[in-house]
Every structure is written in C-alpha cells, then in structure tokens.
Design a protein around this nucleic acid. Structure first.
Lengths: 227, 227
DNA sequence: TCTTCCTTTATAAAATCTTTATAACCAAAG
DNA sequence: CTTTGGTTATAAAGATTTTATAAAGGAAGA
C-alpha cells in the first residue's frame, strides 16, 4: 500500500530524530531529516514529502512561523510533535494548519497510528502501479490483468506467473527461478508444469499464441517477457 | 464560517453531554445527542451530522463496534473522547476509522480546535455517496440497495458484504479480507459462510445468478465486484 | 408462538492443477 | 539432405481442490 512514501522530520534533538528514523523506516516509510526550521523548509520544498513531523521548539525560529510558511504552499499533512503542552500552544498550532498535535514524550505506536490517519485522509494521490505492454495491462494491487480493456480470466497461478514475468520484463528468467518463485523450492525440476502454464497463458494474452510477442521462449534457459 | 453544522455527541455521561452542549453551541454548532451506542447509530442515520463525537466506554456496547458500524456508511469526521488512555485503545480506534482521539479529562479549547481541524479537512467531501453499477445502486448512508429502482430486501450482513465489495469494486478481495471485515478476526477460515452469503446475495442482485455479472468469483482467491 | 436470520452440514457441479502422451521444432552430425 | 537427440508446445485425461446451492437446525426478537 504505502510503497515507501517519504516523511520529513524537522526536529533539533538528534535523539528524537534517531528514534523516529528507526520507528518510521521499520514501518516502511522513507525518511528525510532537518535539524532547523530553515533546513526544514528547504527539505520540504526539495523532497515534497507525503507528511511532515514538525517540532515547535526549534532553536533558530518559532515553530509556528515555520508551520505558517509551510502552509503557504504545502497541502499535505503536518503533525506537530512538541514538548509544549499548554492549551494555547495546541490550539494555536491546530488553527494555523497543523493536522495533529502530540506532546513529548510520545508513544511511537500512537504516532504511527496518527500518521496512518493523516495519510489515509489525504488519499487521492493513490497511485497503484499498472504495468503496461501494448494492449496488455497488469494491475498488481487489484490482481487483475486486461487485454484491450477487457478483464482477462486468469487463474491464481496464471496471474502469479504473468506478474512475475512482467515485473522482470526484459530480463531472462530461468525455469528454476520461475518454479521456485511460483510453486516453491520442491518444484524445481518440474519444467513441464511451466510449459503447460506458459501455453495456457499465451492463449489468453497473445494475439497469436503460435507466434508469441510478449512471452518469449529462451530455449534451454527459460522465458523472457518483452518490454 | 460555521453555517450551524450539526455535531452528534454519543456519550452516556450526562455531565459530559451538558458540558459539550454548552461549549459547542456557544461556538455556533447545532447539537444532537445520544446516550447509548444504539441511539447513536439511529441519530447519525437520522440527522447526518457534520461530525460525531463518540465515547468509547458506552454501557450498552463496545465503542469500537459502534465506530465500525458508523464507518460502513459515514464518511465524515469521528472524534473519539474516551477515559481509556492505553496506547492499544488509541491505536485500535484510529485504525478503525476514527479521525482523532482525546482522553478525558479534556480541554474544551483543544477539543474545539480539533473539531475545526476535522471539519476543515472534510471540506469538499461528497455528501451522500451512491454507488451505481448498471441497474444496481447502493446508498451507503441510507443502508439501502436498489435494483431497477426497486428497494432490495437485504439482511444486515448481506448489505455489509455488498457494500464492502462495492466500495472496493474492481479490486480482488481475498476471502480472509472479507471475513475479517464483515465477521471479525476470529472468522478467518470460515470461507463457507462467505459462499452461502455470496449465493444469497447473487440471487438478489444478479439478473441471472448462475452467470454472475457483478459479483465475480476469483477461484482460489476470493471475490471481485465488477466496475 | 412465529418469523427471520444466522450457522452448519451435505452434496453436486465447476474450476483448477497435475500428469501423460504426442507432435513440433531446431540445431548439429552423418 | 536426412537423421538424431534434446527441447518445447499443446491437447487431453485424471485427480484434486474449490465453489454453489439447498436445506436442516438453532438462536434471537417480535
């Protein structure tokens, strides 16, 4: 789902940045960091992160000012992470464009959940990768393949095989490799399986299965998907 | 700014309701109240509030269940207001569709600011979404489905299943996913349930249940709703 | 009580996977 | 040019898994 979206951390405390870096990257996010408000603004403009975590207590500038500056052009979620706990600070930050406000010390699980909420609400930039090869398109997230716009009726194994080859298009995949990926270790050697499924797949995806243009045989080695 | 939008308060403590009523109405919101989860669901369906404030510790039911039920059709913000302060509760609520989570005792100014954030983010969201698939239409807010204009008589489970699949139309949903969403975590594995309900649903929504056009079987994987 | 809906069970039908058989292909050697 | 050995393609039979459907039993509420 989140195929490595970038989160920008603007915080002067190196321990916090370290902690967040570990927590967030182990949840599959890419991380970008800045220790000052100035650097934060530059980093935001450079990397266009999917979300920003902003500390209000920055040494070089008032956090609220950074928030306002960001909000002049940055539409995506901003979560405030601050040691300040007064109602005035919280209300002020939220009214100036922050999406959420957590006080330090914070609980990492809660922060992650609040990040998920923020990103979930900001959907629309919801791009799922679709592999396209001429009139054939493969939607990996939705588990569907189309030929000339028509959804193809593929079995689960056929789809796995097609997806594997398509993901490695242009590259020759050996019989052993394919068998290991689709059927598992024990099936290396059952090249006949593969031939049967390749033939079935060609009947469904090729214009002329006898003269395959997409799923090419590499005799003695394996198969290759044409780019 | 606030064109007297209605906020629904679902909380069993009368003092909290009184406090919120005063606070929110003096900020220009209209108020609707419910003391139990059941009444809350009814009030939400009746008044279509712009935002819901939900207490998790309701006497008659698990707050999370109310949250899930609301989220089956209610797209607008839901803010949790709860005495429970464990990270587990917070994460669980946020991951089940809550927009924000405040613990009691709360600060009214902060609550108001968080309400403003939630409503601000919800601007431009569509009001009464009706999913349409040929002669079939599904009104999530009113919990009704029509075939050729006729209201279909669906049980609550059947409607949940239909709504889930329709909301994810075009995407293959695995048995496990569907079972988890509709029946809960413990029912993953009970694929036979699903088959029975799919057959029942097809009898009601398909022109020819033996040749389904809408609710497609993906053998070995799950089901897919036609786009 | 009666009705409605959920759950479980049983069984037939359909879809998919595996295996087998055979034909076709292709390059190298005779 | 023909043969030969290795590889690949394809159809089709069989075995296995998965799915559809009816129907019976049970729980809950009117």
């Amino acid at each position: 789902m989140n195929l490595s979206e970038t989160i920008l951390i603007i915080d002067d405390e190196v321990q916090i940045r370290r902690l967040l870096e570990i927590t967030l990257s182990s949840s599959g996010y890419k991380i970008s960091e800045a220790a000052t408000g100035k650097d934060g603004l530059i980093a935001a403009a450079t990397h266009h992160p999917a979300l920003i975590i902003l500390d209000l207590g920055l040494p070089d500038s008032d956090g609220i000012e950074i928030l306002k500056k960001l909000r002049e052009w940055y539409q995506k979620p901003i979560i405030i992470l601050s040691a300040r706990n007064s109602e005035e600070d919280i209300v002020h930050a939220l009214d100036n464009g922050a999406n959420d406000y957590l006080t330090k010390p914070f609980r990492t699980g809660e922060l992650l959940a609040r990040i998920r909420v923020a990103i979930r609400q900001n959907l629309g930039a919801d791009d799922n990768p679709i592999l396209t090869f001429g009139s054939l398109s493969i939607d990996l997230a939705n588990h569907t393949a189309r030929k000339n716009g028509e959804i193809l009726k593929l079995t689960s194994t056929e789809f796995s095989l097609l997806a594997l080859l398509a993901k490695n298009s242009g590259r020759v995949m050996t019989h052993q490799n394919i068998l290991k990926e689709i059927w598992g270790f024990g099936y290396v050697g059952q090249t006949q399986y593969l031939r049967v499924f390749v033939a079935q797949l060609r009947k469904k995806i090729e214009d002329d299965p006898a003269k395959p243009q997409l799923l090419i045989t590499e005799s003695g080695i394996g198969y290759r998907f044409h780019e």
